[in-house]
């Protein structure tokens, strides 16, 4: 099956004045399958935006290559099937509906279907009542929603979103999340770069964490979060001091034990007069994985090579 997005051994070096260079991506390889929501995570300066800009054809790799929907990066015809929302979205100052129509027309759309679709996407992002207002007078959140609308106007097969919800209020975030899930249900692929880990955890099928221009974690979200070698036990009526690394909240003591030792631990709880509340495989948060994957000390001039 043709990958929605594929990077093969891509390196990108930004050259500055003199001998100063910045290696943004280093032998970066990644494959995004059609029909999935793919979370793209990494600390600031890790190379996320560079990878996205390479995919969109805004810049060329120093080495390696990549494909988007089966064609090499930078193919204008392929971009007609792609929706893109940049981080810190910047749009022309004109009425929202006209602006969305403008971007739709650039994607090869036209006629009454474009007008209809423009109204539809503005409604989807909750801006139908603002469609006649100039985008220049919008708040940052509204601007971001307009950006989402322009990315969706051509009904893309592949959506590439760079921090799509960073300026949105919680309600709007929920709306965008539902929009993405709805798009996936329609068979579309979503490549989502975000710092909102809880959001990524909720909706992404697979996640990649990059650091210093390389993929340091990659896998199915459920697999990454699942920690098979430890069991989390919650119990009542026991002292928190009875078990190592335990925490207590509202009288419920929670701790984890290695898998296989849960039976002995449960008996110990009962012997102490405790009552078991729950026994579950330990599930880590995406934040734990992110911190673990990117915890190598990073200096301010990270990536600088002479």
């Amino acid at each position: 099956m043709v990958a929605a997005l594929e990077f093969v051994a891509v390196s990108k070096i930004y050259r500055g004045f003199g001998a100063r260079q910045l290696q943004a991506l280093n032998d970066f390889s990644l494959r995004v399958e059609p029909g999935e929501i793919f979370g793209f995570l990494g600390p600031n300066g890790a190379g996320k935006s560079t990878a996205i800009h390479l995919a969109m054809g805004f810049m060329r790799p120093t080495s390696g290559y990549g494909r988007m929907l089966g064609t090499p990066f930078g193919n204008a015809r392929t971009r007609r099937r792609v929706g893109f929302l940049a981080e810190n979205v910047a749009l022309y100052h004109r009425r929202a509906e006209r602006l969305v129509r403008f971007y739709g027309a650039l994607s090869g759309m036209g006629g009454p279907s474009l007008s209809k679709r423009s109204r539809e996407v503005l409604e989807l992002v909750g801006l139908e009542s603002q469609s006649n207002r100039n985008v220049g007078k919008f708040s940052r959140g509204m601007l971001q929603r307009t950006g989402c609308a322009q990315a969706l106007v051509n009904d893309p097969e592949l959506l590439i979103l760079d921090e799509p919800t960073s300026a949105l209020d919680p309600l709007a975030r929920v709306a965008v999340r539902e929009l993405l899930l709805h798009s996936r249900a329609q068979g579309k692929t979503i490549f989502l770069s975000s710092h909102l880990l809880s959001e990524v955890e909720l909706i992404c099928d697979r996640v990649a964490v990059i650091n210093r221009g390389q993929v340091v974690r990659l896998g199915r979200t459920a697999d990454l979060l699942h920690c098979a070698d430890r069991i989390k036990i919650s119990a009542r009526h026991i002292s928190a001091q009875s078990f190592e690394e335990s925490s207590e909240e509202n009288g419920v003591v929670t701790f984890s034990v290695p898998a296989g030792s849960e039976r002995a631990t449960l008996e110990r709880v009962w012997n102490l007069g405790g009552e078991i509340v729950s026994v579950n495989p330990l599930r880590r948060s995406l934040e734990d994985i992110f911190v673990e994957a990117t915890s190598a000390p990073v200096s301010m001039d990270q990536g600088m090579v002479q």
Binding site: M56, G57, R79, F84, A86, L91, L106, A151
Partner: peptide, 10 residues
Amino acid sequence: RRILAVLSKG
């Protein structure tokens, strides 16, 4: 950065 939205289209 308005060029990005334009060149992200076809």
